[in-house]
Design a protein around this nucleic acid. Structure first.
Length: 321
DNA sequence: AATCCGTGGCG
DNA sequence: TCGCCAAGGAT
């Protein structure tokens, strides 16, 4: 498949490029393991530019796992803002609680322990072990999958799901040296994020363009089955987002009427509300009111519920049904 | 294994 | 304009 010489060439090219071109991100170099952990969860399916300001705010408010664990989970959901997939905020809070209760208030340093935490899968466990603790792991994210698919498999895009072959390929390329391995993982990710992008790869700026199997094959177009996008308009995800936005932006409990303004369709609204409650993202109160979970223990209970706005928000800000 | 889960920017 | 995409995880 590949010779040791080819692998060594890849290593020196990529590591050299990374030393020159790497972004200075706040969770790189100098961040605590907790800071790295929070960044990795926030970065799951969310771009760096949107994560940065929220990450700073979280580090200011909750500099340690114990600090976050002491808060109501609803505060984590509120501070999550519009990063998307708010269950991640809940899982981050649960992970902080587990760190406090089972790991002496620290981020556990091994992949195996990290994997037991809520919201931590194979990628995040490897990434935290590598980037926070310098472990020699095999990190495989969407960037690395795409870079390796092109550079080594002559494919424009990787398969829909991670395959054994991909994992084996990624593992075979991780340098033996511990420090070099950690840098390798972040360097391949960075190449995928900045140069070897999904839409319009900047092959002219690529340090391994002359070694890239996809380029050498003439940059053939993707031939597999068409990649399915996710529906959005008229979905429960859209409605859940609209409902949670109302809760986030309100200081206290919210009436059902206020939620009805966000999602007019009653059947969908009630179904999504039930889902949010069973997910732990929303807490039902008496008399048809709702709030973010555990809000009452974070401070004095607000006296007055927020009523439905007299003037509806612009239609595009609401769930249209 | 296939689906579900948010949000916003860009080509 | 609109589909695609972004440091995935859980079921």
């Amino acid at each position: 498949m590949s010779t040791p010489h080819e692998a060594a060439q890849l290593h020196s090219r990529l590591l050299g490029w990374f030393a020159e071109a790497a972004r200075e991100l706040p969770w790189r170099g100098g961040a605590t393991p907790w800071g790295v952990f929070v960044s990795e969860v926030m970065l799951q399916q969310t771009p760096v530019v949107r994560v940065e300001p929220v990450w700073h705010e979280w580090m200011r408010r909750w500099p340690t796992p114990t600090a976050l664990a002491a808060e109501a989970p609803g505060e984590a959901v509120r501070a999550w803002g519009r990063l998307g997939y708010p269950r991640r905020a809940l899982r981050l809070h649960a992970a902080a609680t587990a760190m406090r209760d089972e790991h002496g208030g620290e981020v556990p340093p091994t992949e195996a322990e990290l994997l037991t935490l809520p919201g931590v899968g194979v990628y995040t466990a490897a990434a935290v072990a590598a980037f926070a603790f310098g472990e020699r792991t095999t990190v495989v994210d969407t960037n690395i999958r795409r870079v390796l698919a092109r550079a080594r498999s002559a494919q424009q895009y990787p398969a829909p799901a991670l395959t054994r072959a991909e994992l084996a390929l990624a593992a075979s390329l991780v340098p033996e040296d511990r420090e070099e391995a950690a840098t390798w993982n972040v360097a391949v990710m960075e190449l995928g994020a900045l140069v070897c992008t999904a839409r319009s790869p900047q092959c002219d700026a690529c340090p391994i363009a002359d070694l890239c199997a996809w380029r050498l094959a003439g940059s053939p177009a993707h031939d597999g089955p068409p990649r399915r996008g996710q529906a959005w308009h008229g979905t429960d995800r859209q409605a859940r987002g609209a409902l949670l936005a109302v809760l986030r932006e309100s200081d206290g409990p919210v009436t059902r009427a206020a939620l009805a303004a966000a999602v007019p369709d009653e059947v969908r609204r009630e179904r999504c509300l039930d889902g949010l409650v069973s997910d732990g993202l929303v807490e039902p109160l008496a008399r048809g009111r709702f709030q973010l979970p555990g809000a009452s223990q974070a401070g004095p209970a607000p006296e007055r519920a927020v009523e439905a706005p007299a003037v509806p928000e612009p239609a595009e800000a609401r769930y249209a049904g």
